[in-house]
Amino acid sequence: MTALDLPVRTHPDERRQVASGNQEQRRRRRREYRLFALLVAPNLLVIAVFAYWPILYNAFLSLTDWNMIAARPTFVGLTNYANILTDPAFHKTLWITLVFTGLIVAGSLVIGLALALLFNQPLKGRGVVRTISFAPHILSGAAVATIWLFIFDPGYGLLRALIEPFGAEPPDWMNNSDWALPGLVIVYLWKNVGFTALIYLAGLQGLPKELDEAAAIDGAGTWTRFRRIKLPLLAPITFFLLITTVIGTFQAFDVIAVMTGGGPGDATTTLSWSIYNEGFQAFNAGRAATLSIIMFVILLIVTAVQARVMERRVHYK
């Protein structure tokens, strides 16, 4: 069997039906249709109700004012959009989301790639360390956040014990509006760079060795070979990680909920937190739905860009 066979794979029944048209075959085909519908229906139903319908529902709710207690929403047209898009508090939320996302994307790409390069060296124990660094990725965000809350504790936290010997005063991380966001970024990086490193490592191990060796023979140094050969060849992986990290970070919630609750003040109020806050603490369905639509559109653009770039990559390959 070759790879070319794959897309045209059909059920053997179909292949035997060269001379079509008799009743037996039509009955068989109908049975197959019915089985298909039966197997696919539960999944499609759940997807339709809980993934696609919410988009339409959000679009509708975003045109209304509703506290979720009144019998029905009041139609207000585009008022929510007008209010939110001109609200300085929303601009700040968007800015915080972008800073938060930017720091995490940059941090996890740079640190993840550095770790992958380290794990790619022939060192004893590198496999164990790679596994250790990946472990936080599969741990509950709420639990990880709670551990770091203790580590950041200004009185008895581990970080105080590491900072004090250098004569510096530890900040009251999560209660200080200058330090809360960087604190969250540290926790997210700790939780996720092991994942980035793992993907980069798989990429590094898939690179053709010949180019690198030829460049080394030509006298190119380690840094030049990294910058001119490895980095460009890893570009598709970097791009994939960039997109997935942006999408994931935009929806970051559990760590924020446990560590800061969007505060102090609004210092860590990201778009994801404000959707929760408007919907489930202020009970303002219209505003929560509008913010949801805004997030959906932003991430849809990000995904569309990804699709375009991936398509081009395939064509030029």
């Binding site: 319908w53 988009i55 999408i247 929806q251 919630f253 489930f280 739905a289 639509i293 997030m295 959906f296």
Partner: peptide
């Protein structure tokens, strides 16, 4: 296509459903 719908965006409608 369901993968393109960010889970966080569905919270409020799904709660109401």
């Amino acid at each position: 296509g369901a993968m393109m719908v960010p889970g966080h965006v569905t919270l409020l409608p799904n709660y109401l459903t």
